[in-house]
Design a protein around this nucleic acid. Sequence first.
DNA 1: CAGCGATCACCCGTCCCCGAGTATTCGCCG
DNA 2: CGGCGAATACTCGGGGACGGGTGATCGCTG
Lengths: 230, 230
Amino acid sequence: MARRRGNPLALAVLALLFERPMHPYEMASTMRARRKEESIKLNYGSLYSVVDGLTKHGLIEAVGVLREGRRPERTVYELTEPGRLELFDWLSELVSTPAREYTSFEAGLSLLPVLLPEEAVRLLEERVLRLEQQLHMDEALWEVTAKQGLPRLLLIEWEYKRMLRRAELDWVRGLVDELREGAFEGLDYWRIWHERCSAGLEPPGLEAAGYGAANSAGSTGGDDPEAPAT
Amino acid sequence: MARRRGNPLALAVLALLFERPMHPYEMASTMRARRKEESIKLNYGSLYSVVDGLTKHGLIEAVGVLREGRRPERTVYELTEPGRLELFDWLSELVSTPAREYTSFEAGLSLLPVLLPEEAVRLLEERVLRLEQQLHMDEALWEVTAKQGLPRLLLIEWEYKRMLRRAELDWVRGLVDELREGAFEGLDYWRIWHERCSAGLEPPGLEAAGYGAANSAGSTGGDDPEAPAT
DNA sequence: CAGCGATCACCCGTCCCCGAGTATTCGCCG
DNA sequence: CGGCGAATACTCGGGGACGGGTGATCGCTG
């Protein structure tokens, strides 16, 4: 009871069994055929352990074992009533409630000062190129798939993903421009900070670049980013 | 050697030690003070295991144990030369190369047909509300923080995140509008499909709503004009 | 100075994820 | 018909993440 909602793959399993009973391998093939592996991480190891977990929690159950020809056995599962409820509840949560998530680019950005400004620009430009490539591939693939006659509904997550990529692309382009033209405030501070760290010295406080009174006058009272703190 | 680049928290550790030697607990406090825990998942369990791993791989090393007053011991670590290289290399990769990542909203969208159209609209509207709230909170927090005098550079990941949220918000609003006004193609197909699944029947193929024959027939296998390049 | 909460600093058991491996069978080409 | 590669269907062991402890100390209050 009160199971931890971890791997979205488990949700996908519930959703597939909502359509009809299946055996695990068929779930995987179906997801592949529908291109759902692009939005839900799928690999066999996880799939089988996830199916086990769901079984243990009574959300699905094995309804039999088939043996077609002399192929290996295939255990077929179906959705239980608790499973159906969990499916709707979980899916509702995913759709209605934005979850705090961490992307690696975000992580990279948040550590950007570690690189030299020139280096950062170079890498961001590389990212722009890669994003453009991916967008083109996405669009090509999407056209092919769409022409197979699939309704928008079944590819809606692709629209979302493409829209996000385009937004990111624009943003990164803008950032690169600002950096290139020196329009980015604090470039001087960045360089100084970096130099001192590389030399093994204490990094400078914020005053060094004219950002005065950061932590000197506790105006906002609360905590204090960039505390020298010793 | 050839370690697996997993947890970005390890990268954060390297980046912090690039500034100066620290003990793990101090790394955590520093990340908190700089609001980096918003972009890099941090918890103590992971932190200590990550530090262990880095030590084992020779990327950082313990330089001593302090005992201030009679407080518990604090093991202080510093960056090694291989560690410095790994830091730049890894960070470069994160910045320059978009990584295939999975968000839970994407997962939710890709399973949307499981819900009824009306239900989906309701949940998406809830999402819009929540996103608006988060945006407002973000902006408030950002203003406070920015007014402490921090340069843009140190908060650049916030700009990125806010921009993504705004983009998502717009997109979801658009989707809701289309659905509300029935401008979304395939609404009828959606409803029929759902009804039949709920009734425990075989779901209809795509012809049911005028979408030409795709893969609805028995062939679950060898489709796809897809040449995925990983 | 006794008591109490907050902070400091770390560790550990559990769960879960994942990639690589295995064994069988089918299709196909010469 | 024999051999090779692709597909089928699943298994397993290592490893990493994560949350919830565990002391010990500091500071404050009455």
